[in-house]
């Protein structure tokens, strides 16, 4: 009985998510309440007579929940839904592949990338099969991670124009600001000075976003000096003064050696 109820709700939810209706989240909440009674889901994983159907409904509902969260730009809700969803993937192997599964898997990788949880990123990646990684939606995130690690940020700019799904835009926007910070950090130490126009290009601001660029420099990079259309990065002052000698540290080291040697002898 509850299954028929659940599948009806699922249908309603899927239409609401595709039409971005505001009532989708309430439908999802009531559907989740029904899911709680399904014994075939983790952590119980009991072999109930309708287990296949129950697992399929649960997967699809939670996948829709993930997509909904991304649409609403709600990272927390997204993580909550994936935390419920991924145990089903790993413990109920007979669940049929749904249309949204790979999209959610790819989005989850993007989410971890944005949160800079690289260890989790790699352990989640480990659970994906080779066939799944080959899929464009998941592979996109994998390649992106590699580019960011190597530092070829220009490829990041090009890949943001060829998203596998419009939903990825949400994460790409948050990634862009992280990337921008990284680039700014790198510029600081590797250049002595740079033209404003070049810096704007390097920091991935469009030519018409000059005001945004200027406010970025003013707000987050206080120590950059703009002189005649050129940014001067503060050089690190190298000093060789007596205060640089870590005398206290050296004294404590020598004393610890002395006590240790005394103990041995």
């Amino acid at each position: 009985m509850s299954i028929s109820e659940a599948s009806a709700l699922l249908k309603k939810l899927s239409s609401e998510v595709s039409s971005s209706s505001a009532s989708a989240s309430t439908t999802l909440a009531s559907l989740k309440l029904i899911l709680v009674d399904f014994d075939s889901l983790p952590p119980l994983c009991l072999p109930t007579p309708d287990s296949k159907e129950e697992q399929r409904i649960a997967c699809e509902a939670l996948e829709l929940g993930c997509l909904l969260a991304v649409k609403n730009g709600d990272g927390e809700a997204f993580e909550g839904n994936t935390n419920q969803l991924f145990p089903i993937y790993s413990s109920c192997l007979s669940v049929p592949q749904s249309a949204n599964r790979k999209k959610v898997q790819g989005l989850y990788l993007m989410f971890l990338l944005v949160e800079n949880r690289l260890a989790d990123f790699h352990s989640v990646l480990q659970t994906y099969t080779a066939e799944e990684i080959g899929d464009g939606r998941i592979n996109f995130a994998v390649l992106l991670e590699r580019e960011l690690m190597v530092g070829s940020y220009d490829k990041f700019a090009t890949s943001s124009t060829s998203l596998p799904d419009p939903l990825y835009q949400f994460f790409m926007t948050s990634l862009l600001s992280t990337v921008r910070d990284n680039v700014a950090d790198a510029l600081e130490v590797s250049y002595e000075s740079m033209d404003l126009a070049d810096a704007q290009r390097m920091l991935m601001f469009q030519p018409n976003e000059t005001s945004a660029f200027e406010s970025f420099v003013k707000q987050s990079r206080e120590d950059w000096m703009v002189v005649d259309n050129e940014i001067k990065f503060q050089p690190v002052v190298a000093s060789n003064r007596a205060e640089d000698i870590p005398s206290m540290k050296l004294i404590s080291q020598s004393l610890s050696f002395a006590t240790e040697i005394e103990r041995i002898v």
Binding site: V150, G151, S152, Y153, D154, N182, V183, D185, A186, L187, E188, V189, S190, Y191, M202
Partner: peptide, 8 residues
């Protein structure tokens, strides 16, 4: 970009 990151 890569060189800049390597320097950093």
């Amino acid at each position: 970009y890569i060189v800049a990151k390597a320097i950093r």
